[in-house]
Design a protein around this nucleic acid. Sequence first.
DNA 1: AACTCGGGGAG
DNA 2: CTCCCAGAGTT
Length: 352
Amino acid sequence: MTSRPSFAERLLAWYDESHRDLPWRRSRDPWAIWVSEVMLQQTRVEAVRESYARFLERFQQPADFACASDDELHAAWRGLGYYRRARLLRDGARAVVLLHGGNVPTDAEQLGELPGIGAYTRGAVGSIAFGLPLTAVDGNVERVAARHRALRTDIKKKPAQVQVRAIAEQWLDRARPGDFNQALMELGAMVCTPRSPRCGQCPVAGDCRARRLRIAAELPVRGERHAMTLVQARAVIVAVRGGVLAQRVPEGEPNAGQLELPSPGALCSVDLEDLPKLLHDRCGIHFAIGLPLATVRHAITHHRITLVAHAAEAMGRGSLQAHLPDDPEVPWTTLARKVFAKLNNTRPDFGA
DNA sequence: AACTCGGGGAG
DNA sequence: CTCCCAGAGTT
């Protein structure tokens, strides 16, 4: 009786035949791989495509990014979200400069000790850039493993995580670990998708338990999600020479360090009558509030924000500074940019 | 173990 | 609308 090709053999044959030609798959430079892996954390491939080449051109080596300013960092990361990832990547780049002479360490343990590099990124960079026999378990791998073995326990809980690790370890092709890890993720992204999996195209469908049980689309099992919190926020638009007044988002709040329109906070529900006092508390300035100019919606983590931006005049400036609304180098929050975009649509003279 | 961080595209 | 994505750090 001839045995079926191994899981890795079938997967790699499929990958060699049909994988996407993505920019980071054309490089074996550990810094380029690292950057791509961090950008891809919780972020779609198409969103990363746009930022990736530009980032690497601006920051060709860890040492280049290690000395980036906060505003440079923000400009390079704009549109990707999770800006903390970028700061951790910079921390990691600084550690590489300080501890390893500017070269990404080829040792798995040293790799894993760098800021921002957890188990997944260590496995991805180590296997892809250096050929180390490490697994790289991400959401795709969790899903493929849960389905192939019909794991019905909560995929994010410890027991399932341990099982998925063991399965990936067993599957891993130690001759081509980097290609294997990418192939597993490619399968999750293109075939074993969260909804409507394309089992007919799957190279390992033959021994997939979930498919045999016809429960592939129901796996993996996830726990209850955090309920959405509705927020009715308000902000003011104060047009001055040189742009509009902006405040820095304080540390400890989402988007810390970026610029927002003066407001009691993007996650703070506000009645119109309370707005002047709350603004004074936050900015130390008295504002005369005018009519609403724009209403925009935005979602951040588990908050659903409806922001009303009012025309206003400021009695003094305090610590607020004027910035140009449409300058891509200014670290406006996405929420603020949505307001500007709306104003440009409804009042075409606004940006000028 | 639970919670936090952004944003957008698919279904 | 809802869900999920090449996760990691903090508490």
